[in-house]
């Protein structure tokens, strides 16, 4: 699966955030479940789901879900993201395993290919009209 593995920096869609950010509702911390008397549980981890809609096409990011492990993540993905025949194959990836390019350096990271139009066939105009070229 070498060239298909979703690794950085191609994948740019998601941002699971482990650290809850305050929203102004209250100043309580994450261990706020005291009101219900239940001990804080280990939350199921976040998984990113990629679905191949039919043979010959790439897996495409569909969304995310929660699951205790990869086995269940796959099953949950099947139930959540392919209820209407959307897929013939599913990948699940722990959200925390995805690395991504730095959004702050968009300019420099993706600048190089700009202006190198000699990488494209349209740059070569003299051969226009020559058949099979």
């Amino acid at each position: 699966m070498s060239n298909e593995t979703p690794t950085s920096p191609v994948v740019e869609p998601v941002s699971p955030v482990v650290e809850p950010v305050e929203t102004g509702v209250s100043t309580s911390s994450t261990t706020d479940s005291s009101t219900t008397g239940t001990p804080a549980e280990t939350p199921w981890s976040l998984w990113e789901v990629f679905v191949r809609s039919s043979r010959g096409l790439s897996h495409v990011h569909a969304g995310s879900l929660h699951a205790p492990d990869a086995t269940m993540a796959l099953r949950n993905a099947r139930d959540l993201y392919t209820r209407r025949n959307e897929g013939v194959s599913i990948w699940v990836v722990p959200a925390e395993a995805i690395s991504s390019s730095d959004p702050d350096s968009k300019g420099s990271f993706f600048e190089s290919p700009q202006g190198k139009d000699y990488r494209h066939a349209t740059y070569y105009t003299k051969s226009e009209g020559v058949k099979h070229l």
Partner: peptide, 15 residues
């Protein structure tokens, strides 16, 4: 938009 029109995670069919 999702970009590549052929690769979609939301193409639905009744089967």
């Amino acid at each position: 938009a999702s970009g590549d029109g052929s690769a979609s995670a939301t193409r639905i069919t009744p089967g």
